[in-house]
Computed example of a mutant assay.
Amino acid sequence: MDATERIQAASQFLLQSPPGEINDVLNDIRNIISDDDLLQEGIQPALREYNIEQFTVVDVPETNYQSIISEVARIGPVSEDSEEESQERFLDPRSKLSFVFDHLSLEASDPQPIQPNEEHEHVRSALEASALNYLKAHFTDGVTAVFSPKGESTHYVIQVVANKYNPTNFWSGRWRSEYTVDLTTAQVKGKVLINVHYYEQGNVQLATTHTVSFELPPAIPSLPSNTAASKILALIEEEERKYQISLNETYQEMGEKTFKGLRRALPLTRQKLDWDKVLGYKLGAELSGTNKNNFSSS
């Protein structure tokens, strides 16, 4: 396998990194590539894709909070004429700042003020305030960002991301949700993405995608911005509540029915297998002294 093929393989590993574990994956593949300069240059596109897709959070310069790196936050270069400012930039609508984001160090730099669309800013800021209240109620360590429309559109995009990393207990998880609110058609469309990784003496990953679509009551678009925003977030909250209930019911059923159906309650010997001692068995010696007619793996 040549260097190009190794970089391509490394990029695929990075894109599949569980929440909070991309640095661990990166450190592992460094030993495979054995060329830091080549690795850093080759994996930049994969890191960029990962950070945008996973709603990576970043400390916003000159503020005391974080914002979200995502496709809707991407605004491109501020100026095509200046080589210094030709780098890709991202927007934090809350502070009305754009910044350059380093996809390797996960740091923001060069903050620049951005003039918002004044026609839509009052609605955007009202949705932001309601989203922040929703965050405090349900996502203690979460981050949210609300983006206003471009041009004459009346679309507003609400994004939420919450990360939980617990390496001591061998698990990590990430919640991402994104909703597009269209006040012209009075519709909300969105999705919820959940990734969980549990890796104590094994490797189990959960990845779910749930789509959301509902109509707003006819009166909402004509309500004052703060009232309308509060009602919209209440509807989103209800949709997410129902989804979480359905997830709980699904996993309870899997534990009680699905997993039990994958194996017999007892092997043919009619004796329970002590799973805690499986790794300690000397299989060669055990199997050689076992009557094959009475042995069956479960």
Results as ranks from 00 to 15, higher is better:
1 M>R: 09
3 A>K: 13
6 R>P: 04
10 A>D: 02
12 Q>R: 05
12 Q>T: 02
17 S>M: 10
22 I>G: 00
25 V>Y: 10
27 N>L: 10
30 R>G: 02
32 I>E: 04
32 I>L: 11
35 D>I: 01
36 D>A: 03
38 L>H: 00
44 Q>Y: 06
47 L>Q: 10
53 E>K: 12
55 F>N: 14
61 P>Y: 11
68 I>H: 03
71 E>Q: 14
71 E>Y: 10
78 V>Q: 12
80 E>V: 14
83 E>W: 13
85 E>F: 15
88 E>A: 11
93 P>A: 11
93 P>Y: 12
96 K>M: 14
101 F>S: 08
101 F>M: 10
103 H>E: 13
103 H>C: 05
103 H>Y: 15
105 S>P: 03
107 E>R: 14
108 A>H: 06
110 D>V: 12
111 P>N: 07
118 E>P: 06
118 E>G: 12
123 V>F: 14
125 S>Y: 05
133 N>F: 06
142 G>T: 04
146 V>W: 09
146 V>N: 06
149 P>I: 07
156 Y>H: 07
157 V>E: 13
158 I>C: 08
159 Q>K: 08
160 V>T: 13
161 V>W: 11
174 R>A: 00
184 T>D: 14
186 A>T: 11
191 K>L: 09
192 V>P: 00
197 H>W: 08
199 Y>T: 05
199 Y>E: 04
199 Y>D: 05
201 Q>H: 07
203 N>L: 08
206 L>Q: 04
206 L>I: 13
208 T>E: 12
211 T>H: 13
212 V>D: 02
212 V>M: 05
214 F>T: 08
216 L>T: 07
221 P>A: 09
222 S>V: 05
224 P>Q: 04
224 P>W: 03
227 T>A: 07
229 A>F: 07
230 S>M: 06
231 K>C: 00
233 L>D: 00
234 A>C: 04
235 L>D: 13
238 E>F: 06
240 E>V: 01
244 Q>F: 14
251 Y>F: 15
251 Y>I: 09
253 E>M: 07
253 E>G: 01
255 G>H: 04
255 G>E: 10
256 E>F: 14
256 E>S: 15
259 F>G: 02
262 L>F: 12
263 R>L: 13
264 R>Q: 13
266 L>F: 12
271 Q>G: 02
275 W>A: 04
281 Y>S: 00
283 L>I: 02
292 K>G: 02
293 N>V: 07
296 S>F: 06
297 S>I: 13
